[in-house]
Nucleic acid binder design. Sequence first.
DNA 1: GTATTAATGTTTAATAAGTATATATGTGTT
DNA 2: AACACATATATACTTATTAAACATTAATAC
Lengths: 232, 232
Amino acid sequence: MTNFDNYAKSAFTVDNIIFGFDEGDLKVLVIKRGEQPYENQWALPGNFVYPNEDLDTSANRVLQELTGLKDVYLEQVRTFGAVNRHPMGRVITVAYFSLIKIKDYKLQGTAALSQKTEWVSIKEAKNLAFDHDEILEACFRRLKRRVKMRPVGFELLPRKFTLTELQHLYEAILEPSKEIDKRNFRKKILSMKILVDLGEAQEGVAHRPAKLYKFDKKKYEKFVAEGYIFEI
Amino acid sequence: MTNFDNYAKSAFTVDNIIFGFDEGDLKVLVIKRGEQPYENQWALPGNFVYPNEDLDTSANRVLQELTGLKDVYLEQVRTFGAVNRHPMGRVITVAYFSLIKIKDYKLQGTAALSQKTEWVSIKEAKNLAFDHDEILEACFRRLKRRVKMRPVGFELLPRKFTLTELQHLYEAILEPSKEIDKRNFRKKILSMKILVDLGEAQEGVAHRPAKLYKFDKKKYEKFVAEGYIFEI
DNA sequence: GTATTAATGTTTAATAAGTATATATGTGTT
DNA sequence: AACACATATATACTTATTAAACATTAATAC
């Protein structure tokens, strides 16, 4: 019978990389560190795992303490376990990412009151504290892979969105320096029949108003059940 | 300045799910537990992480102690952190998988002498100890995804292999109940120009001898550098 | 009237899917 | 030794589907 007292133990944290999409740009929420090490430097949100708390719950708590949001898309990406990640001792970090609609974000979690936070473009989020550049890179790479094969990108958009917004989202994530052909993109996404045309259009725009759509989870489940593959 | 003594610490292990390919079947190496809990039940290879050992090194040690092999394909898959995974107390497990050529396997690691091990078909590996069914499922799912988009399957084959062996490998991993069309598979894999025709053929077979090929890593790197995507 | 961006479909190129026959061995029989 | 048989390998073409490339009309605010 194994006795755990004979083995090394480690502090465990979870980091939750919170992605949002705003003004055609993929953004990540960063917080300014309030103490050493890396005081006053931007870092990713994270916290220690409680003794009787599983990892997913811990990651959801990190998110909720910062944003007040619950029931948000969450995915475990990778565990960072190098020996000397932190000057105070061994700490192993399990990195997750979440996807939220920036419109829903209100700085109303309990942790938000005592920390300075900011949405930063993914293109500009560099030189973060600790090994957070590496953590962010791993999560961004996973997000890229995920949006190609699963309809998770919709978590980043308002409930009602235009096809152009959806296209800009895919461009921001997949091809930051390149444009997807509008006609081909529309043909592809509409052919899957997982969107609902709401019969509404944008208002107050100085150009032809775009139609509004929403993602329909039941139509997606039907799509998958019929053997089709979501692939962008 | 954070003081880790104020936070919970957990025992932590790495499991390394070792895949092999033999007689047209994807196999996984299991060990018979020598003590409670789950005594005499099959389990996946794993061990505690040493105090000054990073996670990858630990996973590689698990493999080497069992097989004697080093420099083997290794990939971190997921961390399992439920609270009550083990009756003796909290333990968090980082799961990896490795790919080896069964021909190279010789039960010559230090751990192999004291444990009963067996190669089990992926189709039959069920009812393992702890949450190992779930761990195996996660690794198998990741392997499926990986072989589609990366030439990692070659790690499971002998250095010289026939196209039919490669096809059977893909069938065993991707479509256990289905056959891929031989002509289409050959056309696709040969069109990538990442294999080398060795100019040799099988011997001693009661049918037309198949040509032998090898995977060429430099040709693959050239393929990628030219902007092509490996996709099966 | 102007500037701006949304909506739309066709053609060409590439790849997926579906399909059959000639080839080369070991084994067994005569 | 010669032959037949069983077996699995190597190969290419046709049809269907999807990717890639490309331009004009429509609908708003100013």
